[in-house]
Every structure is written in structure tokens, then in C-alpha cells.
Design a protein around this nucleic acid. Structure first.
Lengths: 216, 216
DNA sequence: CGCAGGTTTGAATGTCGTCAAACCAAGTGG
DNA sequence: CCACTTGGTTTGACGACATTCAAACCTGCG
């Protein structure tokens, strides 16, 4: 989700917002004080997941700062919202947001655009989960993170560097693999010289086009 | 996607619509006469898919009648739209739909709600693709089709019957399996007495709760 | 009947998951 | 400063499940 607010809207937003910080693993139920409150991620990364009856979970989305979090007039479908890194958020009560939306058709339009974009991203990820092997999935995730870190010139042979903001377990939940398989594929990318890894977190990519090729 | 139009809106819709029929396999590009025209599926089933560079495809959604098809102010992301069965659709030019939307905030609201629901469904399917084995995926698809055919009392031990509107190949593309694996799992469900199959298409379920249990 | 497309079944292969153990990095307290 | 602990990470051996390749089988239709 991308930022969709104008400056004036952001001001109203900020005046009614309450800030809070959270540690990795904290659950950020959106139904805190008011049902279906809205929140803005101002720092860190939030993971959205669904849990199966047997306890296994599947991440269904990531929210990077400064993404919008939550949903209008919420549906019944439960998504677990959890901090993946240290996270700062900024909540707005339901009625404030509803007022904002009804006074601004453009805002509603942008919320619509954004949810359509989220839908596109979800469908992209369905292809990753359904049709890519372990190597391609791991490479795809690295491409996603690189893009979110401002790396643009994907196929130009340029290099890049970024931190992995997720644990191996979170990556596994997102990619529908096991922790061990994620590790093995990262090791393989490293052995093949596609990426360099320092401290299990810092990734350096000498040539983005080679990583892109591995992503299928 | 569900129907989101009132009767009055449907009238305007119908007055400006052009109907057409299509055979299985036909591509229903929405950019026919006008870019990003909208359409209503009045009969049959439409599949939405993404194609990978190597030619393999992944279905990312199904549209049953009377679902709405297409999207407002379309994004750049290409989805292949194809008839899965004999299909009747009813197209509306872009400007008519835009007029409808701007004259009706409720319509825009409902489009927003609907896209949020689509997002939920896409995320549900991500769990199916990511975390279920072949047997559970096939059972999940049968549950989905049963629900779309009006079967409601899922866990009441009631029976049901419906046609599979997709070929084995389409099921495989939707479930991210091979045709052979889909066949084997259907055969297993049949041998175990969970479903009955006639002519490769007609499914009878003596006890929906047993099928539901197989779906994970 | 006989063809064509879709479907079903079988046997062999390979990829990923499971189980187990070792490894590393960071923080704590002696 | 170093031993110790803890949580996360990495690697290996083995097995299970889905894919691949191949052949046979239905069903509808000319």
C-alpha cells in the first residue's frame, strides 16, 4: 500500500492520531479502541498473515513504511497483523477516517486505486507461490525488498545493497517454504556469486540483472 | 466479484451495453473498443490468469455469473481474461461507467468494498497455494465451486451435487498442480467415498462436512 | 466406426520437507 | 575480558510427495 493522503488530509490525520511503538513479534490488532481503526506505518515493517487450523501460517502481505494499514468498514475476514521489525505506527479512530473519506471523493478514489494495486500485488505473489521453485522464490523476495529500498534500474546490470528486514522464519512463511530451504537457496545464491551476505542480514548484489534472472 | 449495482444502475448499464457470446478458450480482452471497458458476466465462467515468461500460467481468479469483470481506471498490470466455459458477457464503454460512478458515491463505495473482498479471496487462495497439499487443494476447489452453486450448509452433513465447470487442465492451472496430480486426487476422493463422479464432470457429495474436512 | 481431446493410471525421478546436529552473533553476568 | 546463554542460522542425511514421461482409457462427435 502506498501513501494516499494529501498534505491537508495528513494534517487532520496527525491531529487525531496516536503514535505508538512496537517490538518484533508484537500483535497490532486494529480493533484496539475502536473496531477497524486505521493506521499509518511510519517506521519498520508489518506482516499480514493467515493462520490455518493446524497452526501453520502463511504471510499474505507486507507493509513497508509509509504504507497505510487497516481497512475501511472492515470485513469479517481475520488477518493477523504483526510487527516484523521495530515498528512505529500512528492510529486514527474510525470516525475520523470516515469523516475524511466522506468529505473527500478523491480520497475514496485513491483508496480504491490502492486496493486494486494491492490486489495486483497479491495476484503476483500467487504466481510466485504457485509456479516458482525455491530458488526463484527467494530471488523474487530479494527483488521485492530491493525495490522497496529504492533500487530502480533492475535490468541495467547495476549493483545494489540492502538489509533483509525479515528473519529466515518470516521469509519461509512468506515464500511457503521451510526455514532450511530458504537457507539453502540463499547459500546457493551466495556460492554462485549472485549475492553477498554479511551478518546474515546485509545483502550486496553486484549485478541486479543476474538476480532478476534467478527470480524467473 | 459479486453484483454491486442497484436496479436503476442496472438499467443504465443495460441501455448502454452490448452483449456477446464466447466459446471456451476465447480471449476476452477488455481493451476491445475502448480501453478498460467494463463487463458483466451474465453466463458461464471466466478465468483470469498471469503468464510467466516460460509460458506456464497461473490462474489468479475465477469470475462466475453474475460477477463484474474488468476494472476502473485500469492499471498497467496485464491479466489474461479467457472464457472457461461458454460465456455471455455484456460490455459497457468506459465513459458510461465513469459517469455512473461519479454520480453515485455509493457505487464507488461498493466497488471499493468489492475490491477489498477480492483481495480477501486472493489472500485465501494464497494460503491454499502455499500451505495445502494436493488433496486439500482439490477439495478446496470443489468446496469453492459448491459454494458458487448455492450450497450453503457446509458443515451440517448435508449432501450436494454440482458440475465441474473447468477442465482438468484449468483446475491444475488454478491449483498450481499438474493435470495428473489433479486426476489422482480426484480418484482418491472417489475411492474414499467422499465424492461420486459421473462423466468426468458431474460431482455428487453425500456429506459436505467430509469434503470440508479434506480441504484442510 | 473411428477419430480427437480430454482424462486416468503407472513407474521412475527429483525437489522440497523433516529430523538432527552444529554453527554464529549478540547480550549478560561473573 | 571471557564464559555462558539464547535465538536465530546453516548444513547434512533421509524420506515423502508431486512431477515427469509414457501409455491406456473414456466420451462426444463426425
Amino acid at each position: 500500500m502506498c501513501a494516499v493522503l494529501t498534505l491537508a488530509e495528513l494534517r487532520t490525520f496527525a491531529e487525531n492520531a496516536r503514535r505508538s511503538s512496537h517490538e518484533p513479534g508484537d500483535h497490532l490488532m486494529l480493533e484496539d479502541s475502536e473496531l477497524t481503526s486505521y493506521a499509518n506505518v511510519t517506521g519498520g515493517i508489518v506482516k499480514l498473515s493467515r493462520v490455518m487450523r493446524d497452526g501453520r501460517q502463511q504471510l499474505v502481505g507486507l507493509q513497508f513504511a509509509p504504507d497505510l494499514l487497516g481497512r475501511l468498514f472492515g470485513t469479517e475476514n481475520k488477518v493477523t497483523v504483526e510487527a516484523a521489525s521495530p515498528v512505529d505506527i500512528c492510529r486514527v479512530p474510525k470516525h475520523v477516517l470516515e469523516a475524511l473519506v466522506s468529505s473527500s471523493p478523491e480520497l475514496k478514489q485513491r483508496l480504491l486505486d490502492q486496493s486494486l494495486q494491492d490486489l495486483d500485488e497479491a495476484r503476483d505473489w500467487m504466481v510466485t507461490l504457485g509456479r516458482k521453485d525455491a530458488q526463484q522464490r527467494v530471488a523474487s523476495l530479494m527483488m521485492l525488498i530491493a525495490r522497496r529500498n529504492g533500487v530502480e534500474e533492475i535490468d541495467s546490470g547495476r549493483g545494489a545493497a540492502f538489509d533483509l528486514p525479515l528473519t529466515r522464519a518470516d521469509m519461509a512463511d512468506l515464500l511457503a517454504l521451510t526455514v532450511e530451504t530458504v537457507c539453502r537457496q540463499i547459500s546457493k545464491l551466495r556460492k554462485d556469486g549472485v549475492v553477498g551476505i554479511r551478518n546474515h542480514r546485509r545483502v550486496t548484489v553486484p549485478d541486479m540483472s543476474r538476480l532478476s534472472a534467478r527470480a524467473g
